[in-house]
Simulated scan of single mutants.
Amino acid sequence: MSSFPPALAHNAIEEVLPDVFLVSGAMETVLMDMDWNFSRNMTIVRDGERLILINTVRLSDEGLAALDKLGKVTDVVRLGALHGRDDAFYLDRYQARYWVMPGLAPEDGTPAQLLGEGGASPLPGATVFQFHTSNIPEGVLYLNRDGGILIACDALQNWLNPDEHFCDASRQRMEEMGFFTPANIGPVWLQAAEPEAEDFTRLSELEFQHVLCGHGQPLLETAREDFSATFRRLFPS
C-alpha cells in the first residue's frame, strides 16, 4: 500500500441520489511548473452489494471503513485521461475489475475492460457516451434511472465556488480561467481536448436530469437544460 499516492484530505461520503454517493477530496499536483491544490470528486454507485467507483479518490482509513459499510468494491471506472491517480490503490485493495475508455489501457499491463458505446458496462442498464472529436480519451457514464443520471469526469464540471481543498493561489488562477461557472465545460479539458460541437449535440440528446462531475457540486433536476444552454453558448451555430 505504501507504493501508492497517499490519501489526501476529503469530506464524508454523501448519498446524493438513491444508491449514488459522492465524496469530494483534495488534489495536489504540479502543472505549468506551478503547484496546484483543488478539489475533485469520486462517485460511488451501489448495485445490490456491489460498489462501483468512478473517478477514484483515495480515502483515509476512516473513509475506507465508511465505504466498506456501503458494500463491496467490485469495479473501478476511469472515464478521463486526466484522472486515475488513485485507481491502482483500489484495484490492489479490492482486487476489483478495471474499466477504462479506449486509449486509457494501463501501460503496465494491468488487465482492463474497455468501455465504449454499445459495449459492456459495469452496471446493468448503464451505457457509455464517448467523445468522438476529443484529442484525449473521455467518456460519460449514463444511468437510465431517476430521470437519467450522467456521471462525468473533466468534460462536464459544476464548480460554483472554491472550497476548503483549494489553496489561495489555485483559487485566484482558476477564478481568472473561468472555472467557477455553473454547468460548465472544463476550461483546461476544453483547451487540451479541442472537442467539436457535434459531441455536445449528441450529449444533449440524452434524457437526463442529474449530472455528477469529477469537479464541483452535483447538479440535480435541471442538469439537461443547464448544460444544454452552456453547449449553445460555447458552440454557437
Rank of each mutant, 00 (worst) to 15 (best):
A81V: 05
L82P: 00
L82H: 11
D87M: 05
D87E: 15
A88L: 09
F89C: 12
F89Y: 15
L91R: 06
L91K: 06
Q95A: 15
Q95T: 15
Q95V: 08
V100Y: 08
M101N: 04
P102K: 11
G103A: 13
G103I: 07
E107M: 13
T110Y: 06
P111H: 08
Q113D: 06
L114N: 02
L114W: 06
G118Y: 11
G119V: 03
A120I: 07
A126Q: 10
T127W: 00
Q130L: 06
H132S: 12
H132K: 13
T133M: 13
T133F: 08
N135D: 14
P137N: 09
G139W: 08
Y142D: 00
Y142P: 00
L143R: 03
L143V: 06
N144S: 14
R145C: 09
R145E: 13
D146K: 00
L150Q: 07
A152C: 14
C153G: 10
D154M: 02
D154Y: 02
L156S: 04
Q157G: 10
Q157E: 14
L160M: 13
L160N: 10
P162H: 09
D163H: 03
E164H: 07
D168Q: 12
D168G: 01
A169R: 05
M174R: 15
E176M: 13
M177R: 13
F180K: 06
T181C: 13
A183Q: 01
G186K: 02
V188F: 12
V188K: 10
W189F: 11
W189M: 02
A193D: 04
A193F: 07
A193C: 06
R202I: 04
E205P: 01
L206V: 03
E207D: 14
C213I: 06
G214E: 12
H215S: 07
G216F: 02
P218K: 09
P218H: 10
L219P: 01
